[in-house]
């Protein structure tokens, strides 16, 4: 480089070159503020679920602060953020899973098709049939594959005849992409399947009661890349019939499967935007810092 001129050395004031890794005085968090309101587009016209000013407390401790968000019809929305940011808490308040925790209280307005889901008169079991959930760890019942899927329809009385039940089980397993792998051994225990198959069985169990919304709490975090790819493909197919909200720690997964992405930070909803926008040029610095691995 002895002959080439260095243009940073001349002109109007040379720029100093900090070494790689030198953070300078520009440390994260010090100069980044929470937005007063969620930036981007948290609200949509065609909403399946509407949440307004949601606050969630565990005893005295507040976990969610004034979150307002719409989940659109047949939309896949990804909730991302560092551990402890409240994304799972928020997801669990969408079908009143938090009711099972005594000290947890949810304030604010949460509606499904304009119906208040925290209405004391509402049947929670029916709500959870309409808003199903898939958990992080595959948790099939210690029953046969058939009974795992048939459990919900039986409970809700969706089938009066055996052949109707058979049909629901087959359809659900087909939609979950598991039918061909298990059709010859429906009477064997669900716990005997591989992890990825178990998770698809749980998805089949969730959709067997024809939910309108499917909540997924890190559905792939215990799975290998092939099983993950199958679940992601499934999410894409299911989105034509269901509305899906997915919590994930894998940003690549959020980028791959979702239409919109919501970024949570310390209990606040920082930004909601089209997924493509979030991952190419997010509106808020905190989102940028998180998805580019600058903290967390």
């Amino acid at each position: 480089m002895e002959t080439a001129p260095n243009f940073t050395d001349t002109g109007n004031g040379p720029a100093s070159i900090p070494a790689a890794g030198d953070k300078g005085d520009n440390t994260m968090d010090a100069d980044i503020r929470y937005p007063e309101n969620t930036v981007g587009k948290p609200l949509v016209d065609d909403a399946k679920m509407r949440m307004r000013d949601v606050n969630v407390f565990y005893g005295d401790k507040q976990a969610i602060f004034d979150v307002s968000l719409d989940i659109g019809n047949n939309e896949v929305i990804a909730l991302i953020g560092p551990s402890g940011c409240g994304k799972s808490t928020f997801l669990r308040s969408l079908n009143r899973m938090n009711d099972t925790i005594d000290i947890c209280s949810v304030k604010g307005e949460l509606t499904l098709d304009e119906q208040n889901i925290y209405d004391p008169k509402l049947d929670v079991v029916e709500l959870r049939a309409r808003v199903g959930m898939v958990f992080q760890k595959p948790n099939p019942f210690p029953k046969s594959i058939y009974d795992n899927v048939a459990y919900g329809p039986r409970l809700h009385g969706l089938a009066s005849k055996r052949y109707e039940l058979d049909e629901i089980v087959e359809n659900s397993l087909r939609k979950a992409g598991l039918w061909d792998e298990v059709k010859d051994r429906l009477d064997q225990p669900g716990t005997g399947l591989s992890g990825g198959q178990q998770q698809r069985l749980c998805i089949a169990r969730t959709i067997s009661v024809s939910p309108e919304v499917v909540l997924m709490d890190e559905p792939c975090s215990a799975l290998d890349p092939i099983a993950t790819a199958k679940i992601e493909e499934l999410i894409d197919e299911l989105s034509s019939q269901y509305t899906i909200a997915i919590v994930t720690h894998s940003m690549q997964q959020a980028a791959r499967v979702s239409h919109r992405t919501a970024y949570f930070h310390l209990g606040r909803l920082i930004e909601v935007n089209e997924t493509n926008k979030v991952f190419t040029s997010p509106d808020h610095q905190l989102t940028e810092a998180y998805i580019t691995g600058r903290f967390g």
Binding site: T8, G21, N26, G293
Partner: peptide, 24 residues
Amino acid sequence: RSHFGQHSSSQFNEEMESIRSHLM
């Protein structure tokens, strides 16, 4: 410029810095 030296992964920082300095 320090923006690209703030990743949690210092190796990533070095790779970005290397790209930048080679471009220059």
